Amino acid sequence: MENNEQNKKKIDKSRPLVEILNLTKEYKNKVALDKVNLTINPGDRIGIIGANGSGKSTLSEIIGGIRKPTSGEIIRQEHLVNGLQFQESRYRAGISVMDMIKYYLHTFNISMKEDELLELLKTYQLLGIENKFIQTLSGGQQQRLNILLAVIHDPDLIILDEVSTGLDIEVRSEIFEFFRKNIIDKNKTMILVTHNMSEVEEFCEKYIYIHNGIIKEAGNVKDIVKKYGSVHNFTWKMFDKNKKADLKKQYEEIKKENAEIKKTKKKNKWIHKAKMPEKSRPWGFYVICVSLFYKVLV
């Protein structure tokens, strides 16, 4: 596989590939990312970890350029080429696996021989279904195609989101061996979003832990393995710590809200409330009684 070398020469390896400055992403009723700062240098392999809904995928999509931030700044090197694999990748109807592969080869000016293509199709277990329409593929087959297209053009920055989802053990093993040869051994820059902590230990040198759209922790994977025994142990410690912090914050907010309600009630208390004596009757009662007595007499 021969890629166009011009793009590689234009990447300055002495400067960051991507710089993120005070980046915020807001949706209608939620802040997905809150003043995030991150620098991605050439050769970095960063694992993004955190609970569901923490902002991991939103951050990776913004880094990849397929989603825009609400505020803040993202600076990319001018000739940076991304390779993107996302779970929710969508393709137009009527496009075959081979159509998509050829499109990438043409777009990125990649020369590829038949035996090289056959080897790739074999590695990703797409051999025999290369002429099928993508929309007819199973979820696992589409996932394998997504991964293939993320790396086929030899990008400068590879972004993988839940890469092992839908892969059986055999396919996962073969594809990860391909990653080892084509990403780690070639010192490629990679962002890995995953719930599988063993993948972070296996493929990443750095990590960032996101919670409620905020980067709570960042550093070297080897340091947390040394301190906690594994990335898995570290992650559960962080889950527990942040869950307790969330519950405490929620409790304080409810407590404050209740205090405000009580305060409002005190402000609206009665200054004077008139009360009728228990045995007294309103004047109208006596008028009715007199009227009835007069009618009886008449």
Score class of each variant (00 low, 15 high):
1 M>L: 12
2 E>K: 13
2 E>F: 13
4 N>C: 10
4 N>Y: 14
4 N>W: 01
8 K>R: 10
9 K>F: 09
9 K>D: 09
11 I>S: 00
13 K>Q: 14
15 R>E: 08
20 I>A: 10
21 L>G: 00
25 K>G: 01
29 N>A: 08
32 A>Q: 02
37 N>W: 04
39 T>K: 13
39 T>A: 09
42 P>S: 12
43 G>H: 03
45 R>N: 02
46 I>H: 10
48 I>P: 07
57 S>Q: 07
58 T>D: 02
60 S>I: 07
64 G>C: 06
65 G>C: 11
66 I>P: 09
66 I>A: 03
71 S>Y: 01
73 E>I: 10
74 I>M: 07
78 E>T: 10
79 H>G: 10
79 H>D: 13
80 L>V: 03
81 V>E: 15
81 V>I: 14
85 Q>W: 07
86 F>M: 06
87 Q>F: 12
92 R>S: 15
98 M>S: 08
98 M>G: 08
99 D>K: 10
99 D>N: 14
108 F>E: 00
118 L>K: 15
121 L>S: 13
123 T>H: 01
124 Y>C: 07
125 Q>N: 14
127 L>I: 09
128 G>Y: 04
131 N>R: 11
132 K>A: 07
137 L>P: 03
142 Q>H: 12
142 Q>I: 06
146 N>Y: 10
149 L>M: 05
149 L>D: 10
150 A>S: 15
153 H>E: 02
164 S>A: 05
165 T>G: 14
165 T>V: 14
166 G>R: 03
166 G>T: 05
167 L>I: 04
174 E>V: 01
178 F>I: 00
180 R>H: 09
181 K>C: 05
182 N>R: 13
182 N>L: 14
184 I>L: 04
189 T>N: 02
192 L>H: 13
193 V>D: 01
195 H>W: 08
198 S>D: 15
198 S>N: 15
199 E>D: 14
199 E>R: 02
202 E>I: 14
209 Y>G: 05
210 I>Q: 00
212 N>M: 15
214 I>Q: 11
218 A>W: 04
218 A>K: 03
219 G>D: 04
220 N>C: 11
221 V>N: 02
223 D>T: 00
225 V>P: 00
228 Y>E: 02
231 V>Y: 02
233 N>W: 11
233 N>G: 05
235 T>M: 08
237 K>V: 07
237 K>G: 14
242 N>P: 14
245 A>I: 12
245 A>L: 15
245 A>P: 08
249 K>I: 13
249 K>F: 09
251 Y>D: 04
252 E>K: 15
252 E>G: 15
253 E>F: 11
255 K>F: 07
256 K>Q: 15
256 K>N: 10
258 N>Q: 11
260 E>V: 08
266 K>G: 13
268 N>K: 09
270 W>T: 05
272 H>I: 13
274 A>Q: 12
281 R>S: 11
286 Y>T: 04
287 V>H: 07
287 V>Q: 09
288 I>R: 09
289 C>K: 07
292 L>I: 15
293 F>C: 05
294 Y>W: 12
294 Y>H: 04
295 K>W: 07
298 V>S: 08
